[in-house]
C-alpha cells in the first residue's frame, strides 16, 4: 500500500502508515503482556516485556465473571502509563470508535480492537485509518487479516482463544494464516482476482501478499499461550512475537514465568534454552478445554 502522507522538509508528519507499522516492527521478537495494575506492569517491564496491555480483567477472569467487558477505566490506564517506560497498549471493543478516541486521547501507544471485550457493533469494525494511534486486530485466517488491514490495522495478531491457557486455537489460526499466504504464492494473476473474492479482501492487498509472501504488517500471535514452549512453538510457526494474557498473572510465579517466556521467544529455535528456562516455573494457569466452551463463549468467533 502507498504511504498516507509525504513529509515536507519542515513539517514533521505524525500518524502515517510508516510510523504506525514501523512501531510494530520495533516490537518484533518480543512479548506483550496483559496487566491489570501498575504493580503487574512493573513486573512485566522487569521481566523484559516489549510492551504491556492495560486491561481491567484478564481474559480468564472475564470468562469466570461474565458480564459485559469494556474499555478499562482511564485512571487505571493512566496509572500504568505512569508506572512504566515501555509502550502501553489498551483494548477497545470491536466497532467502538469512541472508546478508541478516548484511548488515543489518553496517549496509549497502540489500541487492540479486541474480541476479548464484548463487541459494540456486530457488523462493523472501527475505521482505523483516521486515527493517529496505531491499531492491532485479531484474525483467524488470511481474509480476516486483510480486511482488518484494509480498515487501517497496522499490526495483526492471530486470535487463538483468550483466557483458556490452551494453545490449540492459536496453532490453528497461525497455521491457517500461513497456509493462506503460501497458497496465494502459487496463483497467477487471473486466479488472484478469484482469490480476492473468496477471501473477501481487497484485490490490491491480496496481490501484495502473493508477491511478497508475507502480510504487509507485523504478525503476532495471541490467545492461550501459557508456557515458554507455547511461545517458542508459535514463533517457529511464523509468528513475529507473542501476546500473553492470563498465562502470566494466573500462574504460580508470574515474574519468573514472564522472564522465561521472554527468553523462550528470543531463543525460540534453541530447545536447550527453552528447557533451561522452563525448569521450576511452578504452576501454569489452569487451562480450559476449548471443546467444552459454549458457542457464545468462543471469543475467536467475534469479529467479521
Amino acid at each position: 500500500m502507498s504511504e498516507n502522507v509525504t513529509a515536507d522538509a519542515d513539517t514533521p508528519s505524525t500518524g502515517t502508515d510508516r510510523v504506525k507499522r514501523g512501531m510494530a516492527e520495533q516490537l518484533k521478537g518480543g512479548v506483550i503482556m496483559d496487566v491489570v495494575d501498575a504493580a503487574q506492569a512493573r513486573i512485566a517491564e522487569d521481566a523484559g516485556a516489549v510492551a504491556v496491555m492495560a486491561l481491567e480483567r484478564v481474559p480468564a477472569d472475564i470468562r469466570a465473571q461474565g458480564g459485559i467487558a469494556r474499555m478499562s477505566d482511564p485512571d487505571m490506564i493512566q496509572g500504568i502509563i505512569d508506572a512504566v517506560s515501555i509502550p502501553v497498549m489498551a483494548k477497545a471493543r470491536i466497532g467502538h470508535f469512541v472508546e478508541a478516541q478516548v484511548l488515543q486521547s489518553l496517549g496509549v501507544d497502540y489500541i487492540d480492537e479486541s474480541e476479548v471485550l464484548t463487541p459494540a457493533d456486530e457488523a462493523h469494525h472501527i475505521v482505523k485509518t483516521g486515527f493517529t494511534v496505531p491499531f492491532v486486530c485479531g484474525a483467524t485466517n488470511l481474509g480476516e487479516a486483510l480486511r482488518r488491514i484494509s480498515e487501517g490495522a497496522a499490526m495483526i495478531r492471530s486470535k487463538g482463544e483468550a483466557g483458556t491457557g490452551n494453545v490449540v486455537e492459536a496453532t490453528r489460526h497461525m497455521r491457517a494464516l500461513r497456509a493462506g499466504i503460501r497458497a496465494l504464492g502459487t496463483l497467477d494473476e487471473t486466479e488472484l482476482y478469484v482469490a480476492a473474492k473468496e477471501l473477501q479482501a481487497p484485490y490490491d492487498l491480496v496481490a501484495e501478499v502473493a508477491r511478497t509472501g508475507k502480510l504487509p504488517v507485523v504478525l503476532f500471535t495471541a490467545g492461550g499461550i501459557a508456557t515458554p514452549a507455547d511461545a517458542a512453538m508459535m514463533m517457529q510457526l511464523g509468528a513475529e512475537g507473542v501476546f500473553v494474557g492470563s498465562g502470566i498473572f494466573k500462574s504460580g510465579d508470574p515474574a519468573q514465568r514472564a522472564a522465561a517466556i521472554v527468553q523462550a521467544t528470543t531463543f525460540h529455535d534453541d530447545p536447550a534454552v527453552i528447557a533451561k528456562v522452563s525448569r521450576g516455573l511452578g504452576e501454569a494457569m489452569v487451562g480450559i478445554n476449548v471443546d467444552t466452551l459454549p458457542a457464545d463463549q468462543k471469543y475467536s468467533s467475534r469479529g467479521w
Partner: peptide, 10 residues
C-alpha cells in the same frame, strides 16, 4: 513523546 507523537521528517 509517546507513539502518537512519532513522526517522519527530513
Amino acid at each position: 513523546g509517546r507513539q502518537v507523537d512519532s513522526f517522519e521528517s527530513e
